[in-house]
Design a protein around this nucleic acid. Structure first.
Lengths: 153, 153
DNA sequence: CGTCGGTAGTTGAACGTTCAACTAAATCGA
DNA sequence: TCGATTTAGTTGAACGTTCAACTACCGACG
């Protein structure tokens, strides 16, 4: 069966490219800043943040992968590096002999605490300061909708 | 001078994380689909698209780097791979002996033509079909604002 | 109890990006 | 016209991600 492609019209084209430029741009800027100021990419920063928020600063690898939106493999490699940096330690899970628990070390917490203010400032500078409160609200709803549909399909 | 960090309030926190999840999620999904269906990452697809739109399907490396939002180094590596795949050829620039001109080959154009319908469908599925026309409009304005501020600072 | 399918996590190779260093040519300024 | 600066582009190494293959363990069903 031949299906006609519904190409993007010029408006959609423009929106799509603006979205690409903006989202990539914001992420790249924050990534660069974090790499410069804290010596780690944003993905690693996020891992530390999520661990710092977990009870006892510990989390199962699977859950951590799930919540940071990364594959198990990616998380495994990442945690290996974070462990080498002394920021995370891996421990055996007491209830599941297959499992591992990632644990944010005190050094990791301190590194995170040192990096956080600069990063938050960056998020403000590149995102919140630039948009009106109404736009921030719109962005939130749009993002939630998009995110919901991703897990769905 | 000690500066108090203006942390993100819970609403901002939520918005930021939703934005992260959504933009990463959409890009990841399209990247996966393009890799599966066309054997190339989205960044490479974009290079081919931009070349296909250029006069004579030719563009200076610098301009191509600029327009695709990548570093010169990244583009250089990317075009090297695209050239190895037979989709792009590099030619000497006639007006600037330092310069190179990337040229989309017929094979590259055909590959692009084969990949485009599926990709556009993906963009619709993950983005446009999910949002109302008003939201699409909001997203466009927000993205344009964000993009404008990136080049600015 | 045994075994069979699913789950948790790791590994190494291939790939793509970044970073800094480098070559070569254009441009600017005296 | 000579030298200094800037611009164009490439290169290789280090890094981070992906993919597929792998080990080990859990849980369920006979």
């Amino acid at each position: 069966m031949v299906v006609m492609t519904r190409w993007l019209n010029p408006d959609e084209q423009h929106t799509w490219r603006a979205f690409l430029t903006a989202s990539r741009g914001v992420m790249d800027a924050l990534d660069r800043e974090l790499q410069r100021d804290a010596g780690m990419p944003h993905a690693y920063y996020e891992i530390l943040v999520r661990l710092s928020e977990a009870p006892e600063r510990r989390m199962r690898m699977s859950e951590l992968a799930e919540i940071t939106g990364s594959s198990r493999s990616r998380l495994s490699h990442a945690v290996a590096r974070l462990e080498a940096a002394g920021w995370v330690r891996r421990e055996d899970c007491p209830t599941d002999r297959r499992g591992q628990v990632a644990h944010l070390t005190e050094a990791g917490f301190q590194t995170l605490a040192a990096a956080a203010p600069g990063h938050v400032e960056g998020v403000r500078r590149h995102l919140f300061d630039v948009l009106s409160p109404a736009e921030v609200d719109q962005l939130r709803r749009i993002s939630e909708t998009l995110a919901a549909h991703l897990t769905g399909s």
